[in-house]
C-alpha cells in the first residue's frame, strides 16, 4: 500500500502544475491590467482632470480635463439605467408572477433575453443609429441614452430574473391568501423582498453601460462641453480615452491613462458594491 511514483502519479503531477500555471496566468492578467492602469494613470492624474473640461488646444496638449466625459458618462448611463430598469422590471415580474413558471411565454422571453445579451454592442450602436436616423435624431445625449438602455436591458433583466426566480412560491401564495392581487404582490411583496438584488442588477448594468464605447460611438457623439439639453452631443469616458490615445501627442496620451484610471476606479466601485449587496442579500433571503 506504500506510495509509489507510477506513471499515473507523474501524469497527475504534470497536469496539476499546468493547471496551477494557467490559474496563475488568468489572475496574473487581472493584476497586470489593473496594475498597469493604476501605475500609468497615477503619474498623469491631477485635479484638473476631474474638475475641468477641455480648453482650447486640449488635444494638442494644452490645459483642461475630462469633466465633460465624466458628467456625460454619468448622465447618459444613469438615464439609460433608469429607462432599462423601468422596462426590465415589468418584464421580469411578468415572467415570474403572471406567466406560470416554465410557461412557454416565459421560456421564450428568457431565450430572447439571452440572445439580446449575446449581441455585440457595436451592433446595438449601428442599430441605434439607424433608429435615430429614422426619427431624425442626430448624435446626441438622447440617442446615446436610448441605445445604451437597449444594450443594458438584457443584462439587467437577466440579473434580476436570477434573483426574483429564487423567491419561494410560498411567498406568492401567502400574499395571495391575504387577499392581495397579483399586481400588488408583484409590486410590493416581490420587489421589496428582492430589493438589494434589483439594485445590484442595476449596478451591474450601469457598470457595463458606463464602460462601453462601441454603443455610444456614433449615437452619443462627442463634445468638449457638458451637454445642456438632450439633443446636444455628449462626451463619454471610454470615448475620451479612445480619442486622447489616438492623438500623436504624448501629453494627451498620458491623459488617456489618467482617464482610464478614472473609469477603472468607477467600475471597481460599482462592481464591489453590487457584489456586497448580493452577498448580503443571499444571507437574508427567505429560502
Amino acid at each position: 500500500m506504500k506510495k509509489k511514483m507510477t506513471a499515473k502519479k507523474i501524469e497527475e503531477a504534470v497536469f496539476k502544475a499546468l493547471m496551477k500555471g494557467c490559474a496563475l496566468v488568468v489572475f496574473g492578467c487581472l493584476v497586470l491590467i489593473i496594475g498597469t492602469v493604476i501605475i500609468k494613470g497615477i503619474g498623469s492624474m491631477n485635479l484638473d482632470m476631474i474638475t475641468k473640461t477641455p480648453e482650447g488646444g486640449y488635444y494638442l496638449g494644452k490645459e483642461g480635463g475630462v469633466l465633460n466625459a465624466i458628467v456625460g458618462s454619468f448622465v447618459l448611463t444613469l438615464s439609460a439605467t433608469a429607462i432599462a430598469l423601468l422596462m426590465s422590471l415589468p418584464v421580469v415580474l411578468y415572467i415570474n408572477v403572471y406567466a406560470k413558471k416554465n410557461s412557454r411565454l416565459a421560456t421564450l422571453i428568457r431565450l430572447s433575453l439571452d440572445f439580446l445579451w449575446g449581441i455585440p454592442s457595436i451592433v446595438y450602436g449601428a442599430f441605434g443609429f439607424t433608429v435615430m436616423i429614422f426619427f431624425g435624431i442626430t448624435a446626441s445625449l438622447l440617442g446615446g441614452i436610448i441605445t445604451v438602455s437597449l444594450f443594458i436591458l438584457p443584462i439587467m433583466a437577466r440579473a434580476m430574473d436570477e434573483v426574483i426566480s429564487l423567491v419561494p412560491g410560498e411567498l406568492f401564495e401567502a400574499s395571495y391568501s391575504l387577499g392581495a392581487t397579483k399586481f400588488e404582490t408583484a409590486l410590493k411583496v416581490i420587489t421589496r423582498q428582492t430589493m438589494p438584488g434589483i439594485v445590484s442588477a442595476a449596478l451591474i448594468a450601469f457598470g457595463r453601460g458606463v464602460g462601453d464605447a462601441a454603443s455610444v460611438l456614433f449615437t452619443a457623439g462627442f463634445s468638449d462641453r457638458i451637454p445642456l439639453s438632450l439633443l446636444q452631443p455628449a462626451a463619454t469616458l471610454p470615448l475620451a480615452i479612445f480619442f486622447q490615445l489616438g492623438t500623436p501627442f504624448p501629453e494627451v496620451q498620458e491623459r488617456a491613462y489618467a482617464s482610464a484610471l478614472i473609469l477603472t476606479i468607477l467600475i471597481l466601485i460599482v462592481s464591489v458594491t453590487a457584489r456586497f449587496l448580493t452577498a448580503r442579500f443571499r444571507r437574508h433571503i427567505i429560502q
Partner: peptide, 8 residues
C-alpha cells in the same frame, strides 16, 4: 475580469 471595459 469580465467587468473591465473593453477600452481599458
Amino acid at each position: 475580469l469580465a467587468g473591465i471595459p473593453s477600452v481599458i
